[in-house]
């Protein structure tokens, strides 16, 4: 494994920001760390980056304690964007590249490549403060990996981006993965996490509620989502055994079941032996699982 978080706790006097957190990330994997605001994600990132010490537990990179790791193997994109406002796009990328150990000549090819790939060619000599928010985000994302880190932490990389730029960033992250970069990534947009992450950890108030693969999480929850088209009313559906929640949709209802084993029984009760043009049982989306798990919201 590349990164190992082993029973890590971070306390600030009486407040515990992260409590006994453990997970591992394999080399070349994209790992999602998700949770509400204040769940302990940024604290975890800062401990991995050795910006804050752990109160208990250990963090290692390739079996080397994180405080002894050369910082140039790490890349970081913080949640709140940070670039030098009066520096040009190009200077910014060279500065961060050189700061993290690459030579200026060596950087040229990569700077040119990423500027072109992120459609910033005409903004190359523009000061960062004159760029749109989306373009500033692109610049900062490039700056976070221009030095070709082995391990990249992306804290909310998609916030505030339009769908086109989101797609551009998504492709870039997958490209980095192909190149062997290990990525730890957080997002409040669960669709992005579902699309990118192999494994994930869900945090609530510093405690891990789930750590494992997305597939395992979904299977653990089971096929609890039932989409149907029926003549029964919402009230009648609520009365059925095993139904936790009913939501009216554009072309029918979506029911959340207490357990997927109720599926067969419900099919018989709702269809009453008649033809039904829609009866589909699915896994919950990550968004729905997250709301249920973290927010206690019945989906």
């Amino acid at each position: 494994m590349a990164l190992k978080i082993d029973h890590v706790t971070k306390k600030y006097q009486n407040f515990t920001a992260v409590n006994q957190l453990s997970f591992t990330i394999e080399k070349g994997e994209i790992f999602g760390l998700i949770g509400q605001n204040g769940a302990g994600k940024t604290t975890t990132f800062r401990m991995i980056l050795d910006l804050q010490e752990t109160t208990e537990g250990n963090i290692s990179w390739n079996d080397i304690p994180i405080n002894k790791v050369n910082r140039d193997v790490l890349g970081y994109l913080p949640e709140e964007r940070g670039i030098f406002p009066s520096m040009t796009v190009e200077d910014q990328l060279y500065f961060f590249g050189v700061l993290r150990g690459r030579g200026k000549k060596d950087l040229k090819q990569d700077v040119d490549y990423w500027i072109e790939r992120f459609e910033l060619v005409d903004k190359r000599k523009a000061k960062a403060e004159t760029l749109s928010k989306g373009n500033q985000q692109k610049v900062q994302l490039i700056a976070s990996f221009i030095h070709q880190p082995e391990f990249l932490i992306l804290d909310e990389p998609f916030s505030g981006l339009d769908p086109v730029n989101r797609e551009l960033l998504m492709d870039a992250i997958l490209y980095l993965k192909e190149k062997g970069t290990t990525i730890l990534f957080s997002s409040h947009q669960m669709a992005n996490v579902e699309e990118l992450c192999d494994h994930l950890c869900i945090l609530k108030r510093g405690v891990s509620l789930f750590t494992g693969s997305l597939k395992d999480l979904k299977e653990q929850y089971g096929k609890k989502k039932l989409s149907i088209r029926t003549d029964l009313t919402e009230k009648e559906l609520h009365m059925l055994e095993g139904v936790k929640n009913v939501k009216k949709t554009r072309d029918g209802y979506t029911l959340t079941l207490e357990d997927e084993t109720y599926g067969k029984q419900l099919f018989e009760q709702i269809s009453r032996g008649q033809y039904m043009d829609k009866f589909s049982m699915d896994y919950l989306t990550l968004d729905e699982i997250f709301k249920d798990l973290v927010g206690g919201i019945v989906v």
Binding site: R71, P78, E80, R81, G82, I83, L99, Q140, A143, I153
Partner: peptide, 15 residues
């Protein structure tokens, strides 16, 4: 200014 714009946080990842 560096702290407020969070650019310091980015730099402190490497220094």
């Amino acid at each position: 200014s560096e702290k407020g714009s969070r650019v310091l946080e980015v730099m402190l990842a490497s220094i």
